[in-house]
């Protein structure tokens, strides 16, 4: 479904991604793990079109999206739950969710998906009129996920959805991710919580300073000595 071919991404002189390639198969959960500053966020931003690779290509559903503007990429079915949630703090919960459906015109479908998001996150329903900035961290994460789902993506990019959340909530978020996947959405999940990520993913890539150093079935990586040492606390 998504094929990233040897992309090079720079911030000025900083070479942030070096010939990075990865593939996400339809229906799967793929995780990209790595330490701080490895280039995980950069990868997702490049797929979404916020950054442009200097070389290489990105193919989504057979179409080259390397030079497609970001709003068109959303329209093609790629949504992102960005790092740090990035909810619109001065807008209400409901307005945030509406923004997620910004490109859609099917009023009925939007209303239905809104109900679905509210069913999934009852706390958002209770707080629909509340400003997003006043939500707790966990609620904001749920809002960010709900907002991305409102676009009805076929591929959902998630950037450290468990960041800064209490363990119980982390578990809940991962269950939600699995459930979203079960209902047919393909997921590319960036995580520092390698253990949790590997436990729900089908396939995994390990990123180190802009380069993929390991990849394979998530279950196998979980057993690999290298991964254990570096990312699973021994």
């Amino acid at each position: 479904m998504l094929k990233v071919n040897e992309i090079d991404v720079y911030y000025g002189a900083i070479h942030a991604l070096k010939k990075l390639s990865l593939e996400v198969e339809q229906g799967s959960i793929v995780t990209l793990i790595g330490a701080n500053g490895a280039g995980k966020t950069t990868t997702l931003k490049t797929i979404s079109g916020l950054l442009r690779p200097r070389s290489g290509s990105i193919i989504f559903k057979g179409v080259d999206i390397t030079k497609v503007p970001p709003e068109k990429i959303v329209a093609m079915g790629i949504s992102q739950v960005p790092e740090g949630r990035r909810v619109f703090a001065g807008m209400t919960v409901l307005e945030n969710l509406e923004m997620g459906a910004y490109l859609r015109k099917d009023k009925k479908g939007i209303a239905k998906d809104l109900e679905e998001v509210f069913d999934r996150f009852p706390r958002l329903k209770e707080r629909r009129k509340q400003l997003a900035g006043t939500l707790s961290g966990g609620e904001q994460q749920m809002l960010a996920i709900g907002r991305a789902l409102m676009a009805r993506p076929s591929l959902l990019l998630m950037d450290e959805p468990s960041m800064g959340l209490a363990p119980l909530l982390v578990k809940e978020i991962f269950e939600i991710i699995k459930d979203i996947n079960n209902r047919g959405t393909t997921i590319l999940l960036v995580e520092q919580n390698a253990h949790m990520a590997l436990s729900i993913a089908d396939k995994a890539y390990v990123l180190e300073t802009g380069e993929i150093v390991l990849s394979g079935q998530a279950g196998e990586l979980m057993k690999s000595e290298e991964v254990k040492k570096a990312y699973l606390g021994g």
């Binding site: 979404s48 960005p82 619109f88 703090a89 307005e95 923004m99």
Partner: peptide, 19 residues
């Protein structure tokens, strides 16, 4: 609403598909 979203956070607004 798009105006407010862009005022608050351009990158996040772009990720919504806002031009």
């Amino acid at each position: 609403k798009a105006m407010r979203a862009v005022s608050e956070d351009k990158d996040a607004a772009v990720l919504m598909g806002i031009n």
